[in-house]
Write a protein that binds this DNA or RNA. Structure first.
Length: 411
DNA sequence: ATGTCC
């Protein structure tokens, strides 16, 4: 990476017997053997086009590897998209400066927590859903409703999911809302969420249908989770419609939350300010039709972000680390993609066993965020070093802004 | 990540 030639050919290539090659942007970052084996499984599918690209945050997932880009010809693997359809990031720059923020950030964090439902349903009362759906959410739902009703005619179980009452809500796990400062002291708001319960139901249902289809047709798959629909087959068109709809839901979900976060901030910050001076809203878990190497292909980015030339993206660090607003370089070899974060180095269970609350408090010093034992699985040390991850993808993106969080709300 | 009726 120290000279021009290496920057142009920054990736490593692995040949897969009986499959397409794997191109890996993982110079200087650890890759588990299990993740390599999983990438090789996908590379052996007959529908994969040209090669598979692995981003520097690559790690083991279900079926397909998180941090991979899988281009397929006239077919889609629903389990590669996964259940958190349209999961992604949104960031908005404001006219606020660091010095405009109050010394005590706890009221700002509380205001955000009150404005956006978050967390997981513990029984009858669901703090992660709307008690009463706000008017702005109702208006947004009206855009989604007609296509959803059509889907429900063919797949009635989708009607029973949380949809309208989860639009504009955060969810749980690694979904979060942050207030950040960039390298010039400008205040940004940033958040991470997806298509919530309804996207999950769509993903789960079609993954199961693909597996059943594969069994019926005796498909010779290296892993049942890599079952795919081919163009023209029974569920292909329905899946394309449903996954596209869930992706729209997810993008709108983030936009609605961002608006409410800004409104909440205006109630506790005295200075008047404007938002969306620069704004990015990007999926990192999705599929869409794109043109690469002269072919129309379905590109599944599972934990990867689109990085076409000039396109803005977001690469978040973990709780205590920096995040990046990046501009794509349109590298065709990565199918114009980059990483979606730092990537885990250990499972959630291992992190909870290995780290203490004292470790976590030290790692998140100066950040107004949760410091209890239930967020130990999200502690920065459970993730790869973000500097190494960024260095490994210099030929995919350039860094425009470096963001450091000062407030973090976890689901 | 989600929801808890296989």
């Amino acid at each position: 990476m120290n000279n021009k030639q290496e920057q142009q050919e920054n990736h490593l290539q692995e040949e897969v017997p009986g499959g397409v090659p794997i191109k890996m942007w993982t110079r200087g970052v650890p890759v588990e053997d299990a993740a390599r084996r999983q990438l090789a499984n996908a590379a052996r599918l007959p529908i994969v086009f040209k090669h598979i690209a692995a981003m520097p945050d690559v790690h083991l997932g279900i079926g397909a590897t998180v941090g991979s880009v899988i281009p397929t010809l006239r077919a889609i693997i629903p389990a590669a998209v996964g259940v958190d359809i349209g999961c992604g990031m949104m960031a908005a720059k404001t006219t606020l400066r660091a010095e405009d923020l109050p010394d005590n950030l706890a009221p700002l964090r509380s205001a955000i927590e009150r404005a956006v439902p978050h967390g997981r349903a513990p029984g009858a009362r669901d703090p992660g859903a709307w008690g009463k759906v706000p008017g702005s959410v109702d208006t947004a739902w009206a855009q989604l409703e007609p296509e959803f009703s059509e889907l429900c005619r063919d797949y009635p179980k989708l009607a029973k999911t949380n949809h309208r009452n989860h639009l504009g809500t955060l969810g749980s796990g690694n979904h979060f809302i942050e207030v950040c400062l960039d390298e010039d002291g400008a205040v940004w708001f940033m958040l991470h969420s997806g298509s919530r319960g309804v996207g999950n139901a769509i993903g789960t249902m079609f993954i199961e249908l693909a597996k059943q289809d594969a069994l019926r047709h005796n498909a010779n798959l290296p892993d049942r989770d890599l079952a795919y629909f081919e163009e023209g087959a029974r569920y292909f068109g329905d899946y394309v419609r449903a996954v596209g709809w869930a992706q729209k839901f997810a993008a709108l979900n983030r936009e609605l939350m961002m608006r409410r976060v800004i409104e909440a901030a205006k109630t506790v910050i005295r200075k008047n300010f404007q938002s969306h001076i620069e704004a990015v809203n990007c999926h990192h878990n999705y599929v869409q039709k794109e043109r690469h190497f002269g072919e129309e292909v379905y590109v599944t980015r599972k934990g990867a972000v689109s990085a076409k030339a000039g396109q803005l993206g977001i690469i978040p660090g973990s709780m205590g680390a920096r995040s990046y607003i990046v501009r794509g370089k349109g590298n065709p070899e990565s199918f114009e993609s980059c990483s979606h974060g730092a990537g885990r180095v250990m499972s959630r269970g291992d992190a909870k066993r290995q780290f203490t609350l004292a470790d976590h408090r030290a790692a998140t010093e100066g950040v107004e965020c949760r410091k209890d034992k239930d967020v130990l699985d999200e502690t920065p040390a459970a993730y790869k070093d973000i500097d190494a991850v960024m260095a490994a993808q210099q030929d995919l993106v350039e860094v425009l802004h470096t963001l450091k969080q000062v407030v973090c709300v976890k689901g």
